[in-house]
């Protein structure tokens, strides 16, 4: 098969793979953005046992490779406890990968949130208090937007990293774009032993992270209306 015959077939397969990549990307953000906030509250809690517990969890998650975490989450229930809760199909792998990614990214996000919240001057909270606001009104009406403004640059960094980290789900055979590219080495749809589809996956990551860079840059600009 010539390259021009291969291309449409490969393109089609890589698109399917990349759809799975995107799904994992968005599910991770959707889960990790709120979960990270909850974890950050935990680590900032004045109740010591809770803040220590949270900090230990964050240390473990950030201190070990995401790849190992995915392997443990996916294989441990079946191979160690004899109860494969994920099932053997693509849906099960996706679910396991989502759990791993959400937890991992929530821990990184929580530290960014913590920095963002603690970076808001103490005077803002005091101003809210003397105006008779409750703690939650102060958080949502005063602190929150100032936190968002502070965290956009470091969050952008993490989000761009996440685009590429989704490829780690390949380790539990999630059929994302790298998996799709690799399939043409082993043999898939009459194409075998070609390496270029695997290399070509880089273009997907590059384009997608380019789009995100522009969007996140716009968000940063939008928040420039206050200082």
């Amino acid at each position: 098969m010539t390259f021009s015959e291969q291309f449409p077939i490969v393109f089609q397969a890589l698109n399917v793979g990349f759809a799975q990549t995107l799904k994992l990307f968005f599910v991770t953000l959707l889960g990790a953005i709120p979960l990270g906030l909850i974890i950050s509250f935990g680590s900032m809690s004045h109740f010591r046992p809770l803040s220590y517990f949270t900090k230990i969890i964050v240390w473990i998650i950030r201190g070990t490779p995401l790849m190992i975490q995915l392997l443990i989450i996916y294989f441990m229930p079946g191979l160690v406890f004899g109860n494969n809760i994920w099932g053997g199909d693509e849906n099960g792998r996706f679910l396991a990968a989502s759990v791993g990614f959400i937890f991992n990214y929530a821990c990184y996000f929580s530290e960014i949130y913590r920095g963002g919240i603690q970076g808001v001057p103490k005077g803002q909270e005091e101003a809210g208090l003397v105006l008779g606001m409750t703690k939650s009104q102060i958080f949502f009406k005063v602190t929150f937007m100032q936190m968002v403004k502070r965290i956009v640059p470091p969050m952008s960094n993490e989000i761009i990293t996440l685009v590429k980290d989704t490829s780690l789900a390949r380790i539990i055979s999630l059929q994302e774009v790298i998996w799709a590219g690799q399939s043409f080495m082993k043999g898939n749809m009459g194409i075998a032993g070609v390496i270029w589809p695997l290399f070509f996956t880089a273009v997907y990551y590059l384009i997608f992270s380019g789009i995100l860079t522009v969007l996140l840059g716009r968000l940063e600009k939008k928040l420039e209306y206050f200082r």
């Binding site: 803002q124 005091e126 101003a127």
Partner: peptide
């Protein structure tokens, strides 16, 4: 009511 030295207006 309290007026602060550093104003503490809400910037947003």
């Amino acid at each position: 009511g309290l007026v602060f030295q550093s104003f503490n207006l809400f910037p947003q």
